[in-house]
């Protein structure tokens, strides 16, 4: 069912008191869980839940020619789909605008943060480089698939290892893996999504809140020597944000990043044991 008007009104009334329909505070995230082991045939996988929103992510690796303007750097392609299993509103068919936008924002966050050391993905300059293929599937949608997707992608990258590469044949031996992890840096990018409902801001919206929101902003942020870097931003919806609201969002982004960074590191370590 789509959002009833009375629920939107309730969401607004509660926010005036600094409360949310599910009992959270405006800048409180839902519980996050990170698991792996979705597919042994992938170089890396993750299964991430934020509240009831769940995504499965797989990283596959292949070897290809580099782009002419980056001859000594690896490449990356990110795809995202809402599976029709995810909820009533998601029907089959090719990825729609929602999916494309999520894939692009996740991609930019990872790319611009410097989380992947692209030069270390070069096999032979100008001829052969590693290509990282990230596939994200939302299988249960209760809002904020954006942040779940980004987190899932990061987790799958952290858990991935190279496949075996046959240097003589210059081919990947699919299904055979090395122990070598991907060349990742400390600059872990996270995305944080805020919604504006009425004149109130919230983080990590659930489905009803997402449907109530008039404007949305996603910020991909990473950390370099305790300093936060914004790597990607995407505003959604028609309603504008004020400059003051953006300042508040940046402030809350910094806080949320620190809060979940440690938790994520711990959870990923726990998964890898």
């Amino acid at each position: 069912m789509k959002l009833p008007n009375i629920n939107k009104k309730r969401i607004l009334t509660l926010l005036r008191d600094g409360k949310r329909l599910d009992g959270r505070k405006p800048f409180e995230l839902r519980d996050i869980s990170i698991e792996t082991g979705v597919s042994i045939n992938a170089e890396g996988t993750s299964r991430v839940k934020i509240g009831k929103t769940e995504v499965v992510v797989g990283v596959k690796m292949d070897v290809q020619e580099p782009y002419p303007d980056h001859e000594n750097e690896g490449t990356m392609i990110t795809s995202m789909e809402f599976s029709p299993a995810a909820g009533e509103r998601w029907e089959g068919g090719p990825p729609g605008m929602d999916s494309i936008e999520i894939a692009r924002v996740v991609d930019r966050g990872i790319r611009e943060s410097g989380f992947i050391d692209w030069k270390k993905l070069c096999i032979k300059e100008g001829e052969k480089v590693w290509s990282v293929l990230i596939d994200i599937y939302c299988i249960n949608d209760d809002g904020n698939a954006m942040d779940a997707s980004a987190l899932g992608a990061i987790a799958a990258l952290k858990l991935a290892r190279f496949p075996v590469y046959d240097e003589k044949e210059e081919k990947v031996k699919f299904g055979e893996f090395t122990d070598k992890p991907l060349p990742l840096t400390e600059k872990l990018p996270l995305t944080l999504t805020f919604h504006k409902i009425g004149d109130k801001l919230i983080i990590d919206p659930n489905r009803d809140e997402e449907d109530s929101g008039e404007a949305r902003i996603t910020i991909a942020v990473s950390s370099v020597k305790k300093e936060k870097m914004i790597n990607a931003m995407q505003k959604g919806g028609i309603t504008p944000f004020t400059i003051e609201e953006m300042e508040k969002i940046i402030e809350e982004t910094e806080k949320a990043y620190d809060k979940i960074f440690a938790e994520i590191e711990k959870k990923i370590k726990h998964v890898t044991k």
Binding site: P4, I6, N7, K9, R10, L21
Partner: peptide, 9 residues
């Protein structure tokens, strides 16, 4: 019509 309150499923 039902006014105000909230709808749960």
């Amino acid at each position: 019509p039902l006014e105000n309150g909230r709808l749960i499923k």
